[in-house]
Each structure stands twice: as structure tokens, then as C-alpha cells.
Design a protein around this nucleic acid. Structure first.
Length: 633
DNA sequence: GCCGTTTTCGGCCCGACTGTTTTCAGTCG
């Protein structure tokens, strides 16, 4: 059993305990343990083995004697006693109820005990019949909101978040790659196109082991994948199965000769492929998942690589993120495709947290992790006081924290000047690492650029926008910071007009540099959340306030829409991770994909600039070169 | 259930908002 499953079972048990009105601190232990396990890089299965050091599990913070026993039980039997006991009392489907807005553990327990409800369907029926009105604290308003919530839930629950699908794709890839003669494994479909959510997972596999006469053995290997929950189909060169979370996976093993055609076909989108096939016919060709053929004599024109296929159709190569039939084919024909932004273009990350509020790492740790990822500057933006749950900072703490942030920044600069410290260590390591041996190239190995400027940490804060549009820290405090990110954390029952007015007032505060997005797990689905942001984005463009594209996968589907809008209106855009751990700095990659899907280039994004230019551009007069250049277009 | 202790028991992030109340429990971040 792998870490993700172990963590999920513990987390589910925590939820069941909540419904069961268990000790809140015990519940938190289970959640903490689940979180700790998810962050482990080694598989706990090996640490829990019979012959492993019995102390190994206990070394993980958050895992004690009891939890270690649970983990060993799960590895051995797939479950553990407490979980079984709770599942006897409640059906597993009751966990779904917790995902509905307004439904917390107490309310779930109430409908279960009073009406015997443990499924979304049954809850919906009860709500429609008006049965809920007889229960304490539940009125018409609650019922209406719940029904709306169920509707939204149904819309989204059949798809999986891109990072979840990506995680499974990685694990399956790792397993399949062990088979000799497998060379390439590529996720296709909406995952490759960078969609925020995916319906199912398509993996395309090729290599000598996938040639028609020998493919059976490789198919057998794929079908023996341990995490298969239910095998749906097993054909000559295709294996379909579901995982225990119901995600469907299709693995196709293809000969190298037709791999490009297959990759193109299964990457989609459907509309892009339709347009492409129409274009093929106009050129006297026909495109299928096997090859691009000449119509008159069925001779293969291209099939090995996608590049060949696009070229044969008279098109520049179209990056997967753009394949939505929204102008990319015309642009490829005119050689007018934009050069999309890449991960390496981003130099700074301006939104992250430390242990001062709800982050898991220190200032120094975040900085070193950012240096390791090749960034040149970051901003530490812990929460302000209104978010009490995160240990949000009041004015005094904010300034004291800023002082410490600048001290660490100075330390790093001094180490840099002395030719030591994390920046130089990384440089030395890069020099020692032999250049990647993969593509045999005649080019000389690229020179590793010597770091020329010290890493910089900006002192900032993530302030909350209060219902009246003011911020929850004083102007004096905000004026003492390098960067202020303003986000809305509550008040989602306000009308759209109220929300807009609230954000607009904050945008006009002279201390706000970046407008973050409204946040919240359950509120993301709520209707007021799909704000018509046009007036807000217009105000940002006028005031020179940058608009944040939050790279967190959980925020993704909010941003896609507003990103295009922001660009059209000439907003300055920054992409930030909002990291709460060093590992989450890697989320930048998800943010970049979203930017690419919105056709953005490096020049459209403010934090691709070196730190001094960035800071100059961030000032509240929209006079930065970036801004001027965009308006000339 | 975990953790750490002047080590085996006591502490463990908390404040705002909502819908239903006439004083507050439950949800949320």
C-alpha cells in the first residue's frame, strides 16, 4: 500500500471520527499523521515491513505508537480496527456529504441519526420533500443553499484535479518503465493539454517491446499493476482499468512507427482534431490515430512524431496547451503562434508562507528551496490577523517578521559576497553535474551561468480585505513592507455587487501591490464566486495593481477565465505559488501551464523580470516598460 | 492520538460569519 492511500485512509478515519463526535484532538492527530505521510518521500510500506527498524515510523513527526500500529495494520490487512468499527456504524458514502457546502460533521451526524441519510441522493430527496425543515437549525434558506450545493457538487465530482491525475500518471509510468524495451510513456488527453481537471487518464507507451509481435508480454506487465482496482478491458495493445478512487486509466502500447499519430490523436482536443482532419482532407490527406495518409494511394506521409504530422499539414508545431481549436491552427499556418512562457522564465515568487503563520518552513528554508529551484527572489507573505486560524499577524508582529525577513536576506547577500552559501553551493553542484547525456548532441554543453546577484527576500504580507473594503492592518504597517498581497478570505454570502465594491476599495488602497484571489475550499463552487471581475481587473490595470495568478492546483479553474480577461484589459500579471511548504514551490509548474493555455508569453508576466525591474514595475504608476510595451501592441 | 516535560499528564492555532435563533451552535478558513 502506497503513501497516498495510507494518508487517505487516515484522513477518512478522521472525518468519520468527526461525524462520530470523537475527541477533537484525536481527530487532529489523524489529520496530522495523514499530512505527514503525504509529505514523505520514502514509501512507508518499506518502513512498516517486518524486518524494518521498528523506530523508523516513529521518527516521522506526528506518528506515535498508536499511529505506527495503524500503519502496520493497513500495510498488512488494508485497514485497521478503528476504521472498521466506524465503517460498521456509518456507510463510506457518508464522507461525500462532508464535501457539500454547509454540511459539516455535526450536520451530517444529525441527518444520519434523524433521517438515516448517508448518501447525497437521499439527502437531496429529503431536502426536496422538505424533511429537513423539521430538524433543528435548518430552515428554507439552508435547504435552498444545500440543493444548489448538491447541483454544483454533481457537476464537478466526476472529474479529477490535474495534480491528482499527474501523481497517478507518475506512479503508473514508474511501474510500466520497469519492463525492458519500454522507452517512452506519455500522458495524453486533457492532462497533456494542461486542463485544470481531467475526466480520465490516457497513457501512451512505446518502445521495442510494443512492436506487434512481442507486445503481449508488455500488456501482461501493465495488467499486473498493483494499484489496479478493477480491470475493465484487456485487448491486444490496450489495458483499461479504474483505480480505487474511480479514476479510469487507459494504457495504450503502440509501435514506434505510429506513436506520433497516436499521441496527436489522443491528446485532442476533440475540436482541434476535427479541424485538423478537415484540413488534411483539403490537402488530399487523411489523418487517423495511426497515420497521416495520402488519400489517393494510402501512402504514409507522417506518423512517427507529432512534429512531422503538423509539418506535413503545413503547420508549425502547436503546443498541446493551445489545442482547443480557438485560433491556434490559423496562427500555426501563418507562423504566428506566440512563444509561450516557460517555467524557467519566472525569476521570482511573491506569495508564500512560513511558520510565522500557517506555513511549515522557516524563512531561511523557503529561501534555500527557492534558490534550489533557480529562482532569484521571493516575497514572504504570511497571513494577517483577521485569519486567526492561521495564527495571522497583527501590526506589531508583521513588522517584527519583516525585520527578520530582511535579516535573512542580508545574511544570504553576505554569504554570496563571500563566495559561499546556498547560491554558490548550487552553482558548484551544477558545475560538477555532467550535462544530461540523453540526446546525443553535437552542440557543446551549455555553459552554466555564474550567479551575478545575491538572492533577495522581500518582506511582505497577505492582508485580508474586510467587508467594508479596508484592510486588516494599519497603513503605517503596510507602508513599511516591500510588497502587499490583498486577498478576500470570507464574506461569500455577499452579493456580487457587494463583493466587487469590497475588492475595488482595496485595489485603490495605495499600499496594495498585488490583488490575490478570493480563497476557500468549499466556497470555490459557490455561485457568488464566479464573480464578473471585469470592473475589478479594469481598476487593477488603471491603478497599476498586479493581478495574481495563483498556481495552486486547487485554485486553477477559477483563474483560467479571468486570466484571459486580465490580459485583454492590459493588467500586469504575476504567477505565485502561495506555497505553505518548500515542496509546494514546485506548484509553479501548474501555474505556468495555465498561463500557456491563456496564450501568455514571458513578457506578459511581471515576475519574469529581474528583481530591481520587477520592483520598479510594481510601483503604483503604470509606467513600467512592460506596461508601455503591451499597450503599444 | 501526539508530544514533551522541572517526563507519564495536560495541552493541543482561533475569530468571523451564517442561519437559526432571541443567545448560539455549527461551518469555514
Amino acid at each position: 500500500m502506497d503513501n497516498i492511500t495510507l494518508a487517505r485512509l487516515l484522513d477518512e478515519t478522521a472525518s468519520l471520527l468527526e461525524i462520530d463526535a470523537g475527541d477533537p484532538f484525536r481527530i487532529r492527530s489523524y489529520r496530522r499523521a495523514a499530512e505527514a505521510i503525504q509529505q514523505q518521500t520514502t514509501q512507508l510500506e518499506t518502513l512498516a515491513a517486518q524486518d524494518a527498524d521498528p523506530k523508523a515510523l516513529l521518527a516521522i513527526p506526528g506518528i506515535g505508537k498508536g499511529m505506527a500500529t495503524n500503519i502496520r495494520d493497513m500495510v498488512a490487512t488494508g485497514t485497521f480496527p478503528l476504521r472498521e468499527e466506524l465503517l460498521e456504524r456509518y456507510k463510506p458514502s457518508i464522507l461525500e456529504l462532508l464535501r457539500l457546502p454547509g454540511m459539516g460533521p455535526k450536520t451530517v451526524a444529525l441527518v444520519h441519526s434523524a433521517l438515516g441519510i448517508s448518501q447525497v441522493d437521499a439527502l437531496e430527496d429529503a431536502a426536496r420533500r422538505g424533511d429537513l425543515l423539521h430538524l433543528p437549525r435548518m430552515g428554507q434558506k439552508f435547504t435552498d443553499k444545500l440543493l444548489k450545493g448538491i447541483e454544483d457538487y454533481r457537476k464537478n465530482s466526476s472529474r479529477f484535479r490535474t495534480d491528482v491525475a499527474q501523481g497517478y500518471a507518475e506512479r503508473i509510468r514508474e511501474f510500466i518503465a520497469r519492463f525492458p524495451g519500454i522507452e517512452t510513456i506519455t500522458p495524453a488527453g486533457s492532462l497533456r493539454r494542461g486542463r485544470e481537471t481531467v475526466g480520465d487518464l490516457d497513457l501512451l507507451v512505446t518502445g521495442p517491446a510494443c512492436e506487434p509481435d512481442v507486445v503481449a508480454a508488455a500488456v501482461q506487465h501493465v495488467a499486473s499493476l498493483p494499484i489496479i482496482h478493477k480491470l475493465l478491458a484487456r485487448g491486444q495493445n490496450k489495458v483499461s482499468f479504474t483505480l480505487d478512487n474511480n479514476l479510469q486509466v487507459d494504457v495504450r502500447l503502440l509501435p514506434r512507427s505510429s506513436y506520433g499519430a497516436a499521441l496527436q490523436y489522443f491528446t485532442g482536443s476533440k475540436m482541434h482534431n476535427v479541424a485538423l482532419r478537415q484540413r488534411a482532407i483539403k490537402h488530399g490527406l487523411t489523418l487517423s490515430e495511426y497515420a497521416l495518409l495520402r488519400l489517393e494511394d494510402n501512402v504514409v506521409v507522417a506518423s512517427r512524431t507529432e512534429q512531422e504530422i503538423y509539418q506535413a499539414l503545413g503547420l508549425d508545431f502547436i503546443p498541446p496547451e493551445l489545442r482547443e481549436n480557438s485560433g491556434e491552427i490559423e496562427a500555426a499556418e501563418a507562423h504566428a503562434l506566440p512563444r509561450l512562457i516557460e517555467r524557467s522564465a519566472v525569476r521570482g515568487d511573491l506569495h508564500m508562507h512560513t511558520t510565522e503563520s500557517d506555513g511549515h518552513n522557516s524563512i531561511r528554508e523557503m529561501a534555500e528551496a527557492a534558490i534550489e529551484r533557480g529562482l532569484e527572489y521571493i516575497a514572504i507573505t504570511d497571513h494577517s490577523r483577521n485569519l486567526a486560524m492561521t495564527n495571522g499577524m497583527d501590526d506589531a508582529r508583521t513588522l517584527a517578521h519583516a525585520h527578520r525577513i530582511r535579516a535573512v536576506s542580508t545574511d544570504l547577500a553576505e554569504e554570496f559576497a563571500a563566495g559561499r552559501g546556498p547560491q554558490w553551493e548550487r552553482y558548484q553542484r551544477l558545475l560538477r553535474t555532467p550535462p544530461s547525456a540523453q540526446p546525443p548532441s553535437t552542440d557543446p554543453a551549455p555553459e552554466i551561468p555564474r550567479p551575478t546577484a545575491p538572492f533577495r527576500i522581500l518582506a511582505g504580507v497577505e492582508v485580508d480585505i474586510l467587508p467594508d473594503g479596508t484592510l486588516d492592518l494599519s497603513d503605517e504597517t503596510l507602508a513599511g513592507l516591500d510588497i502587499v498581497v490583498a486577498s478576500v478570505h470570507s464574506g461569500f454570502n455577499q452579493t456580487e455587487e457587494e463583493m466587487t465594491a469590497r475588492i475595488l476599495r482595496a485595489v485603490h488602497s495605495p499600499y496594495v501591490h498585488i490583488l490575490g484571489h478570493p480563497t476557500g475550499r468549499k466556497v470555490l463552487e459557490r455561485e457568488p464566486y464566479k464573480l464578473q471581475l471585469t470592473p475589478v481587473l479594469q481598476a487593477c490595470a488603471r491603478a497599476g495593481v498586479a493581478v495574481e495568478h495563483n498556481a495552486q492546483p486547487a485554485r486553477a479553474d477559477l483563474n483560467d477565465l479571468n486570466l484571459r480577461l486580465a490580459r485583454q484589459l492590459g493588467c500586469r500579471i504575476v504567477v505565485n505559488t502561495d506555497a505553505h511548504t518548500t515542496a509546494q514551490l514546485d506548484h509553479l509548474a501548474y501555474g505556468i501551464v495555465q498561463l500557456r493555455r491563456a496564450w501568455l508569453q514571458a513578457a506578459d508576466v511581471l515576475n519574469t523580470l529581474p528583481v530591481h525591474q520587477f520592483l520598479a514595475a510594481l510601483r503604483r504608476t503604470p509606467s513600467a516598460p512592460l506596461y508601455a510595451a503591451k499597450n503599444q501592441e
